[in-house]
């Protein structure tokens, strides 16, 4: 558990971060460090330099944004849990943050780090997919906004350029009569998601589902939307039978990971089970 040597930088502005990324192609940004440092301690990752963004202004804070919420990239899970704005507007984010890792991880891990690292079993990629979030990033060519549906590309691979840093993640104000939930089956050893399902369900005036975004993490190489389930739900009454039938489609077409705790078949099954649970809870909240 002894990493190899590295250079250490502590920039004091986003521009400096970008410049350091350009000058150090083998460098890595470090925020909470609880994904990066274990890999370095096992010498599975050996970045030549660490760029510590802990003191870069403008990357933290949770603010209300036109009724929605904007999270600074360096917002920790603990800050999300304790934020009044989040509890009022997007309680599912606090719910999900509360089941990430453990207290120590929640005090250090950041929402920006979570999505930039793109671990297939991280919780927030699914949550943000369900929330249709937008990711702001800054690089050598300035700022841009990436829609969350275009953000996750592959295992540990996002559409961020190597010299870009995530600065903010924003979620628009949810439509009226929208309920959200995050249901997770935790890995008994690591605490990551064997399967985690985030559901955002909006009901129309007729009581039927008018919109749904369902996202699944842990089961496959990246967090993905359950398009089949979404289509099956929209326009339907959110009865237990309809939800169950829609949830059966959640595993269709997915590639599943496997390990000694959960093989592919079991993960596929859990995907369907937890999709059903997440949707039912979201519906209950939309109706309540």
């Amino acid at each position: 558990m002894y990493p190899s040597a590295f250079d250490y930088f502590r920039p004091s502005s986003v521009d400096e971060v970008v410049k350091l990324l350009q000058e150090n192609p083998e460098g890595k940004i470090i925020a909470g460090g609880h994904s990066l440092l274990p890999m370095m301690k096992l010498r599975l990752a050996a970045p030549a330099s660490l760029i510590d963004i802990g003191r870069v202004p403008g990357l933290d804070g949770i603010r209300s944004d036109n009724g929605g919420v904007a999270f600074g990239a360096r917002t920790t899970y603990d800050q999300i849990i304790k934020s009044d704005v989040v509890q009022q507007t997007l309680p599912v984010a606090a719910e999900a943050a509360g089941v990430v890792g453990d207290i120590q991880v929640r005090n250090r891990g950041t929402i920006g780090g979570s999505i930039a690292h793109a671990d297939p079993a991280a919780d927030f990629p699914a949550v943000l997919l369900a929330l249709d979030a937008k990711v702001n990033a800054t690089g050598p060519n300035g700022q841009r906004t990436i829609g969350i549906d275009d953000f996750f590309v592959d295992m540990f691979t996002t559409s961020l350029e190597p010299e870009e840093i995530v600065t903010e993640i924003s979620v628009a104000k949810p439509a009226a009569k929208t309920g959200m939930a995050y249901e997770k089956f935790s890995h008994p050893a690591s605490g990551y998601a064997i399967v985690g399902v985030a559901a955002s369900v909006t009901l129309g005036n007729d009581g039927n589902v008018s919109a749904a975004r369902i996202a699944i993490t842990g089961a496959g190489p990246i967090a993905v939307r359950a398009n089949g389930t979404e289509s099956a739900l929209v326009g339907q009454a959110p009865t237990a039978e309809n939800v169950k039938a829609a949830a059966q489609k959640a595993s269709d077409g997915m590639t599943f990971l496997g390990d000694i705790h959960a093989g592919e078949e079991y993960r596929a099954h859990l995907t369907r089970v937890f999709t059903e649970r997440a949707i039912n809870k979201a519906v209950e909240r939309a109706q309540g």
Binding site: L44, P120, M155, P221
Partner: peptide, 17 residues
């Protein structure tokens, strides 16, 4: 080695990829 001990859940996916 270390990668085998730690990255079990990803190895199949990586290899196939």
């Amino acid at each position: 080695g270390p990668v085998g001990a730690v990255a079990q859940r990803m190895l199949g996916g990586v290899a196939n990829r």
